[in-house]
């Protein structure tokens, strides 16, 4: 079986869940090789990658790789594609992951599939397009298949791999240093799970009414271990930070459970959450389009329903 490269997503040295999902997928199609780019690599990180099936771990852990926008990561992967001739390259379908995939596709003269929600034999990818209205199966026909896979497309399953470490020495080219990151500004995040990775997401919209009122949404989220999301109406009003926006121009989420409170369900919002497995809606307007995709809906005032739901969940724990 041949090798499949998986670009590792990591934060503060921690491997993100989507990477474990990608390793799980890669194992079903070949031998999984993890590619670590940037600082923060450790024995613990390696152990985690091996636990989920990485036979090899390529490590390029210099700061240089993350000090410039996207290009150095694409160069690193292109070098590995040249040296190792993998059967495919998998990245997470985050905005940045897709950009890495795009540049890599140009560099290696290979096809790219963005936003796969499943991947099978022959690297045939499932895509859910047009806001979830059409399902497509597609595949790369030239070069090394490069596939960006949406987080939560598969459940991570542990199965030990050899975890053989190989250092990769790379210095980004001058061209890859053209866009320099001079400062990283972190906006509050808190202890909640990350939005795109969370199994449960609770989102609030214009109906929440104010920044203070988002506490109601946060309490519900915390009672059930969820991430908090927001519609654009709520982020535009500055009630909640923009990085929590769900939708076409925000994050695409695909959790097990999505709870929408005070959100009407505009097409641009639905584009970011329609592939959620189960959807619960709380809205006072029975005509709100979001009810069309609800598995369970409550027509009512969120200021009554949400706190009661939170209380019930706490009670039943």
């Amino acid at each position: 079986m041949s090798e499949i490269l998986v670009l590792v997503e990591h934060v503060d040295g921690e491997v993100k869940k989507v990477t474990l999902e990608l390793l799980t997928l890669a194992r079903t199609l070949g031998e999984a090789s993890a590619v670590w780019a940037g600082p923060g690599y450790s024995e613990a990180a390696k152990a985690k990658l091996a636990e989920y099936g990485a036979d090899k771990v390529y490590v390029a852990d210099s700061d240089e790789i993350v000090n410039y926008v996207v290009a150095p990561k694409a160069e690193l992967l292109a070098k590995l594609v040249g040296d190792k001739s993998p059967a495919a390259v998998l990245v997470a379908a985050t905005t940045e992951g897709k950009e890495v995939a795009g540049r890599l596709a140009v560099k290696t003269d290979s096809g790219v599939i963005t936003d796969a929600v499943g991947l099978g034999e022959g690297f045939v990818a499932d895509q859910s397009i047009f806001g979830g209205g059409v399902n497509v199966r597609s595949r790369v026909t030239k070069g090394t298949p490069i596939v960006a896979v949406r987080p939560n497309s598969t459940a991570p399953v542990a199965a030990a791999g050899a975890g053989a470490e190989e250092k990769v020495e790379v210095a980004p080219s001058d061209a890859a240093r053209a866009a320099k990151i001079v400062e990283r500004v972190k906006e509050e995040k808190g202890a909640r799970p990350e939005l795109t990775e969370a199994a449960i997401v609770v989102s609030g919209g214009r109906g929440v009414g104010s920044a203070e009122n988002f506490a109601i949404i946060e309490k519900l989220a915390d009672s059930i271990g969820a991430a908090v999301g927001a519609s654009r109406a709520a982020t535009d009003a500055k009630w909640y930070p923009h990085q929590f926006q769900v939708g076409q121009t925000g994050k695409t989420v695909s959790p097990q459970l999505y709870i929408a409170a005070g959100i009407s369900g505009a097409i641009q919002h639905r584009a970011g959450m329609q592939t959620s497995k189960t959807i619960i809606v709380i809205n006072k307007d029975p005509e709100a389009p979001i009810f069309e995709i609800a598995d369970f809906g409550v027509v009512g005032d969120l200021f009554q329903v949400v706190p009661q739901l939170t209380e019930e969940i706490e009670k039943r724990k």
Binding site: V11, E96, A179, K180, R184, E187, P241, Q243
Partner: peptide, 10 residues
């Protein structure tokens, strides 16, 4: 725009 906020890029 990034997952954690934003990067200043030059």
């Amino acid at each position: 725009i990034t997952d954690y906020g934003f990067d200043k890029v030059e």
